Computed example of a mutant assay.
Amino acid sequence: MELERETGVALGPCWCTRVEFDAGLLARVPQPAQRLACICAACARGNAPA
Rank of each mutant, 00 (worst) to 15 (best):
E2V: 08
E2F: 01
L3M: 12
L3C: 07
L3Y: 14
L3F: 13
L3D: 14
E4F: 00
E4I: 10
E4W: 00
R5Q: 11
R5M: 05
R5W: 02
R5N: 10
E6M: 10
T7R: 09
G8D: 13
V9S: 04
V9D: 08
A10G: 03
A10I: 07
A10P: 05
A10S: 11
L11K: 01
P13G: 11
P13E: 13
P13C: 05
W15P: 06
W15R: 12
W15N: 06
W15Y: 14
C16K: 08
C16F: 05
C16I: 04
T17W: 03
T17A: 10
R18N: 15
R18D: 14
V19I: 11
E20S: 15
F21W: 11
F21R: 09
D22C: 09
D22N: 12
G24C: 01
G24L: 01
G24R: 04
G24D: 15
L25E: 05
L25Y: 03
L26A: 06
L26H: 07
L26C: 12
R28K: 10
V29H: 04
P30N: 01
P30F: 00
Q31I: 03
Q31H: 10
P32R: 02
P32M: 00
P32G: 01
P32Y: 03
A33V: 00
Q34F: 01
R35S: 11
R35M: 05
L36F: 08
L36M: 11
L36V: 15
L36P: 00
C38F: 08
I39A: 03
I39R: 13
C40R: 12
C40I: 02
A41R: 15
A42W: 10
A44M: 07
R45G: 06
R45Q: 13
R45C: 08
R45E: 13
G46S: 08
G46N: 03
A48S: 10
A48W: 11
P49L: 03
P49W: 09
P49C: 06
A50W: 04
A50L: 11
A50P: 12
